[in-house]
Simulated scan of single mutants.
Amino acid sequence: MADVSPIDVQKALNGADYPADRDDLVSLARDNGADASIIDKLSAADTDRFDGPNDVQKAVFDGK
């Protein structure tokens, strides 16, 4: 799996409205042309709902 940077995740989720469900963010990332590695990390997040970008970053990079 390719390395994913926080900036890549922010770009993939450009236009997200929070709070947001995981499935909505995965769909948005796909619509924004995100790399498969970002989609995979979002899909594998342990939480179903994110209150904001910081929650996404924690889930993607800290596995929380």
Rank of each mutant, 00 (worst) to 15 (best):
D48E: 15
P6A: 08
L13P: 09
I7E: 15
P53S: 10
P53Y: 10
D62G: 09
L25M: 06
D8T: 13
G15T: 09
Q10C: 11
T47L: 09
D55T: 10
M1F: 11
L28E: 00
L25V: 02
D35I: 08
G63L: 09
D21P: 05
V4Y: 04
M1N: 11
R49K: 14
N54P: 01
I39V: 13
G15M: 08
V4G: 09
D62A: 14
G15S: 08
G15H: 09
S37K: 12
V56F: 01
D17F: 09
F61G: 06
V4A: 01
Q10E: 15
N32T: 07
D51E: 11
A45R: 03
L13H: 10
P6N: 08
V60K: 05
V9W: 02
L13Q: 08
P19E: 11
I38T: 07
S37M: 01
V9E: 03
A2D: 12
N32R: 06
D48H: 11
D55C: 03
D3A: 13
S43P: 03
D3M: 12
R30H: 02
L25S: 00
A45L: 09
S43T: 03
R49D: 10
G63N: 10
D35G: 03
S43K: 00
F61P: 08
M1D: 13
R30P: 00
G33V: 09
F50L: 01
N32Q: 08
D40K: 10
V26E: 01
V60N: 06
I7Q: 15
G15Y: 07
A20W: 02
D8A: 15
V4M: 01
V9Q: 04
A2T: 13
K64D: 15
V26H: 00
A2E: 12
R30T: 07
I7L: 14
D35M: 01
D24N: 10
I39Q: 01
D35A: 07
S37F: 01
K58W: 08
V4F: 04
G63M: 12
F50V: 04
A59S: 13
F61V: 05
P53Q: 11
V26Y: 00
D46N: 11
P53T: 08
K58G: 06
Q57D: 13
N54S: 14
D31M: 11
Q10N: 13
A36N: 13
D46Y: 05
D17G: 13
Y18D: 06
D21G: 15
A59R: 03
G52R: 04
Q57M: 15
S5H: 08
A45V: 02
P53K: 08
D3T: 12
V9I: 06
L42M: 07
A59V: 07
S43F: 00
M1G: 15
D31G: 05
D55Y: 07
